[in-house]
Design a protein around this nucleic acid. Structure first.
Length: 591
RNA sequence: GCGCCCGUAGCUCAACUGGAUAGAGCAUCGCCCUUCUAAGGCGAGGGUUGCAGGUUCGAGUCCUGCCGGGCGUGCCA
């Protein structure tokens, strides 16, 4: 429709140019946007305002000149000048109602578009280290990433959701040692648990599994375990040095085989827990990508070679550095440490390269706001390898403060003091949890009020939307029982009877759904869908209270049923995009 | 110190590419269930968009400075 209106105006402009009223050099960009209030019609353009300067004429005068030559269209009822010089276009009633026909015909694919041009991209999100269960802090990235991926898929992107598993490196060693020490404890030997170890109870659970499977096989004497280990922080030492010492001893005492066993049990256990938690959160990935795989294959070496070929690597103080500053980063970055180990950043570079080697044309990363420092270095790495940095996109999600009883909840993975994502889902339900996280703009700090989310009352906006959906289902049920089921033909033939204010409003909202979807994809903002759903639900509730659908008049009844059905389809679609269900009834069985 | 993000109603947040009278929910105060689910609807009050400048037909939105909050600034992951 917007395209049609643009053509109308383009013709008007060239007509005026032919008549020499407008100079022929101008080539204005014609923008249309949906109006906010219906007094302003359906679509408006600011063309006259933007032309005011180049033509040095008052905008309203230009607007009048345009109106005078705009040719008639079967879709346009009238065009008005308003405010400082907007041109407001009013569509015909018939045109406005056509959208119902479209929605009923297209069903769940209504609103699909090709904004993304079929671009093949990865959307990577969460990617939390497999060193412990996901907590509520991960929830926002999970909800946002999954919803965004869904929206992008509707808008013509070929999306692959990936979780990058950091199954390599020091944090994993710390995990393995933490498990091992808890295991030693279970064997009856007291240990002083390191300050920098993972404190959570889940570590003990894993240790129990190890013990069950291997008995006392990995048990060593306390003095061997602590042999030569620097003192811990609580004893006035350095907690990093302390745990590194423990790692060395663990690897020596257990040898590679034993150490790997503990390591693998810990990794598998935690990773499968993460998968389960995410599934319970309605988040599914197409790919779980292992960092270790990058090490085991030659990917990291090849990536570094590429940088080397391009002369962006150099050696200094025994380490290998990437010239990130050459591409706008603040500092050069180490890719290989003095001790020969590749840094985490080296894996990141390799992973990035790998994404494009696998044929993806774009890589979208969802990071927590604390990772914003990665933007510059990742883009630098891309440039260094000859990858167009415009195809690397990093979206930050701001932190969600957890609030309980009006107080901020402090959390830390290492301390084990956190509320797990699965606990949250258990308390508030997936629907509310998913919706709550994504109803706010991702670049906005937000407070996640646990008590509010837990309260299964009307405070939860998701219920409001689901209720609208359930109400529609209920109407159809009721009428079917009375043998007045929806007759689609009669309904579509009677659309002209939809004349009430509430029906007009609902129609307006329905027809803007495709634009909302595109906007959500373009600005990477799934919360637009959440806001939209609230609006359409509100429109419906309002309608529901004002007018009866199940009425005697067969024509009007079926027209209204068509409108209801279109509304229901859109609500169901939107909820699905956000990972929430669209229930047929709000009467839950367990209550 | 430097860099990134944010600041909108009492509270939590919207505002599409710079557009028209800055909108919702909660909370407060009225009203509406013999009518398809009241987890609902209708209405009222509530604002110098942190402050000060600038850009222009037009600024919550863009630019500069300040104030306040968050995060980052490792041969950590």
């Amino acid at each position: 429709m917007i395209k049609h209106l643009q053509e109308l105006l383009e013709k008007a402009v060239s007509d005026l140019q032919r008549k020499k009223i407008f100079p022929k050099e101008i080539k204005p960009q014609i923008n249309f946007e949906r109006t906010r209030s219906k007094e302003h019609g359906d679509f408006s353009t600011n063309l006259a305002l933007t032309l005011a300067k180049p033509l040095s004429k008052p905008p309203r005068e230009i607007a009048q000149q345009l109106i005078d030559v705009i040719i008639e269209s079967s879709h346009v009822e009238k065009v008005e000048i308003a405010g400082p010089g907007f041109l407001n276009f009013f569509l015909t009633q018939n045109c406005r109602r056509q959208v119902i026909k479209q929605v009923l015909k297209q069903g769940s694919s209504f609103g699909d578009n090709n904004f993304g041009n079929n671009k093949k991209i990865t959307v990577e999100f969460v990617s939390a280290n497999p060193t412990g269960p996901l907590h509520v802090g991960h929830g926002r990235g999970a909800a946002y990433g999954a919803s965004l991926a869904n929206v992008l898929a509707k808008c013509g992107y070929q999306v692959q959701k990936e979780y990058y598993v950091n199954d390599n490196g020091r944090q994993m060693d710390i995990l393995a040692v933490s498990v091992w020490l808890r295991y030693i404890e279970l064997c009856g030997v007291p240990v002083v648990f390191p300050d920098n170890g993972y404190q959570g109870g889940y570590i003990v659970d894993i240790a129990r599994i190890v013990r069950k499977k291997y008995g006392d096989k990995f048990l060593y004497k306390s003095q061997d375990i602590y042999e030569g280990v620097p003192v811990d922080e609580k004893d006035g030492g350095d907690k990093e040095a302390h745990i590194d010492g423990l790692i060395v001893n663990a690897k020596n005492l257990l040898d590679k085989k034993g150490y790997d066993k503990i390591f693998q049990i810990a990794l598998k256990n935690i990773l499968s827990g993460i998968k389960t938690d995410l599934e319970g959160f309605n988040v599914e990935y197409e790919s779980w990508f292992s960092e270790k795989q990058l090490h085991d294959s030659d990917t990291i070496d090849r990536a570094l070679d590429k940088l080397k070929e391009n002369n962006y690597l150099y050696e200094k103080e025994g380490a290998v550095w990437f010239m990130a500053t050459h591409f706008g980063d603040d500092l050069d970055r180490v890719v290989e440490r003095e001790n020969g180990q590749k840094t985490y950043f080296a894996s990141d570079i390799a992973y990035l390269m790998n994404k494009f080697e696998r044929g993806f044309e774009g890589a979208l990363y969802v990071f927590g706001a604390d990772h914003h420092g990665y933007i510059a270095r990742l883009k630098a790495a891309a440039k260094g390898m000859g990858i167009n940095p415009d195809n690397i996109e990093i979206v930050l999600t701001q932190f969600a403060n957890l609030v309980s009883k009006g107080k901020k909840v402090q959390m830390g993975t290492r301390s084990g003091n956190f509320i797990s994502l699965s606990q949250l889902v258990k308390d508030v339900g997936v629907d509310a949890a998913r919706f709550f996280y994504v109803m706010r703009s991702h670049d906005q700090h937000m407070d996640f009020d646990i008590d509010l989310a837990k309260s299964q009352t009307n405070d939860n906006p998701v219920y409001y939307i689901q209720y609208a959906h359930a109400r529609i289902c209920s109407i159809f049920n009721k009428l079917e029982q009375q043998a007045m089921q929806h007759n689609k033909e009669i309904g579509l033939a009677s659309l002209h009877m939809l004349n009430t204010e509430q029906e007009q409003t609902l129609l307006r909202t329905i027809s803007s759904y495709p634009e909302i979807l595109t906007a959500a994809a373009r600005t990477r903002a799934p919360h637009l869908v959440a806001n939209y759903l609230r609006e359409i639900a509100q429109n419906f509730h309002s309608y529901y209270n004002a007018h009866q659908v199940g009425i005697e008049d067969e024509n009007l009844r079926n027209a209204r049923l068509s409108l209801c059905k279109a509304t229901r389809i859109i609500i169901a679609n939107g909820l699905q995009l956000l990972g929430a269900s669209a229930p047929k009834t709000m009467f839950s069985e367990d209550k």
